[in-house]
């Protein structure tokens, strides 16, 4: 008897990370959460990071009547650090291969992704219709991550049910 995962592995390995990246992703998300809470509680922690960066957008001091595109300096702080950790963490967790990957796992993955995108779009629509002002902007900042959250929950639940129902 021999394993013959080659064809499916060829299909998936082009866009999925190795299984070890899932743990790295969860670690990054945990660090982001801890750092966010720390910044919220202790102001010195929030001010600790100040990384000079190049900004591709006009700064606040730009003349609003004249649109221009340029490059200017900006400082990346705690917000940029948290967002970066969240972005990378979410991608690693959501798009890492399973240790045993086959076409049914890929099927579950696609179904979960479609479900998560649709649920998230409904949330965006309801938010647009019923929430206004600064609260709307806060929601919009969260929604890129909520898509991944819905996907991770749905995918892992579907995987658990599949393995439980087909154990015998």
């Amino acid at each position: 008897m021999h394993s013959n995962y080659k064809t499916h592995e060829t299909m998936v390995k082009n866009y999925l990370f190795s299984p070890v990246f899932r743990k790295i992703g969860y670690a990054l998300l945990a660090i982001a959460l801890v750092y966010y809470v720390a910044c919220w509680i202790w102001e010195p922690v929030a001010d600790f990071i100040c990384i000079p960066m190049l900004s591709l957008t006009p700064g606040m001091e730009a003349d609003p009547e004249k649109f221009h595109f340029g490059i200017q300096s900006a400082n990346a702080g705690w917000f940029e650090v948290v967002m970066t950790l969240m972005c990378v963490g979410c991608v690693f967790v959501a798009f890492s291969r399973e240790k045993v990957e086959d076409e049914f796992i890929a099927h579950i993955r696609v179904q979960s992704l479609v479900w998560a995108l649709m649920v998230n779009m409904v949330l965006v629509l309801l938010t647009t219709l019923f929430i206004y002002g600064g609260s709307y902007l806060i929601c919009m900042a969260v929604y890129p991550f909520s898509t991944f959250l819905f996907f991770i929950i749905k995918y892992n639940w579907a995987l658990y049910k599949f393995r439980r129902n087909n154990e015998e």
Binding site: M1, N4, Y5, E103, F104, I105, F162, N166, E167
Partner: peptide, 28 residues
């Protein structure tokens, strides 16, 4: 398990196909 290894899927996938819970791809 033996059949799963021969065709390159998990044992649970073979179980799902036998129960009618999953329609395999053309390749499989």
């Amino acid at each position: 398990q033996q059949l799963a290894e021969l065709v390159g899927v998990s044992r649970q996938t073979i179980n799902a196909i036998e129960k009618g819970n999953y329609v395999p791809s053309t390749t499989l």
